[in-house]
Design a protein around this nucleic acid. Sequence first.
DNA 1: GCAAAAGTGTTACGAATACACCCATGA
DNA 2: TCATGGGTGTATTCGTAACACTTTTGC
Lengths: 231, 231
Amino acid sequence: MSIYYPNEDRQLLAVDCVIFGFDNHELKLLLIKRNMEPGKGLWSLMGGFPKRNEGLDQAAERVLKQLTGLENVYMEQLYAYGEVDRDPGERVVSVAYYSLIKIGDYDKELVSGFDAHWVPVGEIPELVFDHGVMVEKALRRLHRRARIQPIGFELLPEKFSMPELQSLYEGIFQKELDKRNFRKKILTMGFLDKLVEKDKSSSKKGAFLYKFNPEKYQELLDKGFYFSLDV
Amino acid sequence: MSIYYPNEDRQLLAVDCVIFGFDNHELKLLLIKRNMEPGKGLWSLMGGFPKRNEGLDQAAERVLKQLTGLENVYMEQLYAYGEVDRDPGERVVSVAYYSLIKIGDYDKELVSGFDAHWVPVGEIPELVFDHGVMVEKALRRLHRRARIQPIGFELLPEKFSMPELQSLYEGIFQKELDKRNFRKKILTMGFLDKLVEKDKSSSKKGAFLYKFNPEKYQELLDKGFYFSLDV
DNA sequence: GCAAAAGTGTTACGAATACACCCATGA
DNA sequence: TCATGGGTGTATTCGTAACACTTTTGC
């Protein structure tokens, strides 16, 4: 017990992770079947409890790594949920994070060990506690972010074609986009490198592959450039 | 101790409030001289500790009311700060909130009792712990919000003139705006009611007063209207 | 009558939108 | 040769930005 704040309540703190992936032209969420009470067996976000000597961000990273084996992926704090009764087991304040991962990269064994499943965002089942609220907020945040930052590249493999990128944005915004305008806008921004390779997996002609160039993107930012995609 | 999560660390949780006001053509922040260790005597945000049976939002509202006497004002969660060493006294996770108040309304006696002062945002002193980081984030959030929501009316008295409103936005964005374009944009949005009264306090001619009309604003939102001020 | 702030319209530019056809290839 | 998805350019519209003079009135 500290000498400074001896009379204050100590409380239980959690982190929960909203994990997005993109696959087969669909935006998906990684959900688990909760393996402890209260709410055992219900669909849930992956979560955990920060240790006394562990920062919140580190705790969220640990939880993500536990489930997916991934580190150094895009991760951002979403919101702190502090309703007294949000967890029927005990008063728990949960700080939600969301992360974007390349769906090809995660560790399949870990994921299936946790009884975790990729669920399309259009088919999210009822979730335990207030996890549904967290997911909705994460989706709204993702929409906003996708408009003002080239966030989509976190969700795609390193090399991707323009049709793939477009279909990602269409998946995020749930809206069809005009391919001519989309290409024009993205390419004139100037932070994509066109490769000579083609992806022939989805057409006979094949689609040229591109790579995100973070250095060029940073240069643009430094010059006052604003990414903006109005859909 | 709960039967569900018996082995997890309980931790100290705090809320801190970034309180904005607008006065004399300047955006200001309400800061206090911290009255306890660690950091006694340093400039600080007003904060407090949520009780075990108190939601985070309620705790933040309580803290705001303690200092200003105000309730039912604009208040929004900003971010949860969870670095292990952010408070040298003990590991404390702090959830920061920011609020916008009408600077004429607060309780002067309470405020001076806490040794609190309104400081222009351009002249913020060094703050205790990571409170400076919180303030920076609050400013960025305020900027973003002010572009996409008619947030400014929270900071002005009920009746205000167009030059006052413009000077508020100029204060928030630290940028001069063209008055013709500003009026045009705001008025064509259609959620302000023009009154017959004039405010003669700052000119001989007098400036017509306006009132924000929340019902009209809600109608517009329902029709798919987006507030947007690009500065 | 003059200083000081309030109020008003028009033009020019750039960005977003809508839109239709040719190309390359494997089957 | 044809079906499939990839790739390209232009005209129109709309919103934003730039810009200068008149009005009111207290002193």
